[in-house]
C-alpha cells in the first residue's frame, strides 16, 4: 500500500519531469511533489522557441502550463535552483545554496545540455547556443545586430532556428557533418534529400565537411572547415545535439554511461531513484539493449512510466513512436521530436 505522505522530488522541469508530476499527482493525490530546476523559466514548448524570435510575445507564451496549473495540482515548483549533489544513502539532495532537500522517491529528469564537440571546445565562448527559453530571449534582443548565421551541426532546434533566421531575412550556412549528432535516421539518402531541401530554401550547405576552427574577425567570426573553407559569419550556432545533463551525479554512486543507466522500469542503480528523458540511457526489452533517448515524445512517455513505477506499479518501458519533421514539404523521421520544421 502506497503511503499517502510520500515526498516525490523531480529534478528537471521539462517534458519528462512534468509528465511524471502529472502522473504522480493523479496516482497519489495526498503526496508531496516537488520539481527542482536550475532554469529560471517554466516548462516550455521547444517547438515554439524559433517562432518566438519572430514576434514580441512575452516569454510566458512559450510555457506549456500557466503557473496556476502547479498551484491547482499542488506541485511545488523550485526554479532557478541548482542541485550540486545527490546522496542516495541519505535520500538527500544538496543544492548550491547549501540547502539539503529530503526525498522519499526521486526522479532524475534533468534533460540534456548542448553537446560541444571536443574539437570545438576551445571555441566555446564564440559559439551561440539556442536550446531553451532564456537563449531565445537573449537572441531576440540581439536580432538587429547580425545578418549572417552559421549552423555548426544540425539538430531539430537548429533546423527550426534556421527557418526563423530565413524568415527574419538573415542568410544561413549549414555545416553538415554526419558524425555530429542528428536526431534523424541519417543515411546517404536522407542526407542528400536534406541537402536538397536546405538548398531549395536558399541555405548555403557545406556538406561532407566539418568545422575545425572559429576565430574572431572584427565584430564577426570566421568559421573554418576541415576542407579549408572559410565562412564569414556574424553568429555561429552550436547545433550539434545534446548530451545528458548529469554532472551533479558525480560521486553519487549511481551507474552512468552516456546517460543514467536505468532498467526497463526506469529505475537507476540506486534505491528509490528513477531517471527519465534525455538524461537517461534506457534498457529496452524490445531491443535487448540500452538506448539514449531524445525528444519530447520519448521524454513524456518515459516520465509517465517512471512515475507509474514510483507509484509502485510495474510498468515496462517500450519504444515510443518516432516523430517527424518536415523540410520543404519532405518528411524526416526523428527519434522522438515532433512539431519542428524549417518551413516556418
Amino acid at each position: 500500500m502506497l503511503k499517502k505522505s510520500l515526498k516525490y522530488v523531480i529534478i528537471g522541469d521539462g517534458h519528462a519531469g512534468n509528465s511524471a508530476a502529472e502522473t504522480l499527482r493523479k496516482g497519489n493525490p495526498g503526496s508531496e511533489i516537488v520539481i527542482i530546476s536550475s532554469k529560471p523559466t517554466h516548462y516550455f514548448d521547444h517547438s515554439l522557441l524559433a517562432t518566438f524570435l519572430l514576434d514580441k510575445k512575452d516569454i510566458t507564451s512559450l510555457y506549456v502550463y500557466p503557473y496556476t496549473w502547479y498551484k491547482e495540482n499542488n506541485i511545488r515548483l523550485r526554479l532557478n535552483q541548482t542541485i550540486t549533489k545527490v546522496i542516495p544513502d541519505k535520500h538527500e539532495l544538496i543544492l548550491a545554496h547549501n540547502e539539503r532537500v529530503y526525498y522519499d522517491r526521486l526522479l532524475i529528469a534533468s534533460g540534456a545540455k548542448p553537446k560541444l564537440p571536443e574539437s570545438l571546445s576551445r571555441y566555446k565562448n564564440l559559439l551561440t547556443v539556442f536550446t531553451d527559453a532564456v537563449d531565445a530571449m537573449k537572441l531576440r534582443e540581439r536580432l538587429g545586430t547580425f545578418k549572417h548565421v552559421t549552423m555548426v551541426g544540425g539538430d531539430c532546434i537548429g533546423l527550426h532556428l534556421a527557418g526563423a533566421m530565413l524568415k527574419l531575412g538573415k542568410s544561413v550556412t549549414f555545416v553538415l557533418n554526419e558524425y555530429n549528432f542528428w536526431p534523424l535516421e541519417f543515411d546517404e539518402t536522407v542526407k542528400s534529400k536534406l541537402i536538397g531541401c536546405l538548398k531549395k530554401k536558399h541555405i548555403e550547405v557545406v556538406a561532407d565537411d566539418m568545422t575545425t576552427e572559429i576565430v574572431r574577425d572584427g565584430t564577426g567570426l570566421n568559421v573554418m572547415t576541415k576542407n579549408g573553407k572559410i565562412i564569414k559569419t556574424d553568429l555561429a550556432f552550436l547545433t550539434s545535439g545534446m548530451v545528458p545533463n548529469i554532472d551533479f551525479l558525480d560521486g553519487s554512486g549511481i551507474d552512468v554511461q552516456t546517460g543514467i543507466l536505468v532498467d526497463e522500469y526506469m529505475h537507476t542503480s540506486a534505491q528509490d531513484i528513477w531517471a527519465a528523458g534525455e538524461c537517461a540511457t534506457v534498457y529496452y526489452p524490445e531491443l535487448k539493449d540500452y538506448r539514449q533517448t531524445t525528444g519530447e515524445i520519448n521524454a513524456k512517455a518515459l516520465g509517465n512510466i517512471s512515475a507509474r513505477n514510483m507509484l509502485d506499479e510495474k510498468k515496462v518501458v517500450s519504444l515510443a513512436e518516432p516523430g517527424k519533421i518536415t523540410i520543404e514539404g519532405e518528411d524526416f523521421i526523428t527519434y522522438g521530436w515532433k512539431g519542428f520544421s524549417i518551413d516556418i
Binding site: V34, P40, Y67, T68, W69, Y70, K71, I75, R76, L77, R78, L79, N80, Q81, L95, H97, N98, E99, V101
Partner: peptide
C-alpha cells in the same frame, strides 16, 4: 531556506 517556499509564479533570483 526561502528557496523552497515560493509559489509557482514567483521569480527567484
Amino acid at each position: 531556506s526561502i528557496a523552497g517556499h515560493l509559489g509557482p509564479g514567483m521569480y527567484l533570483y
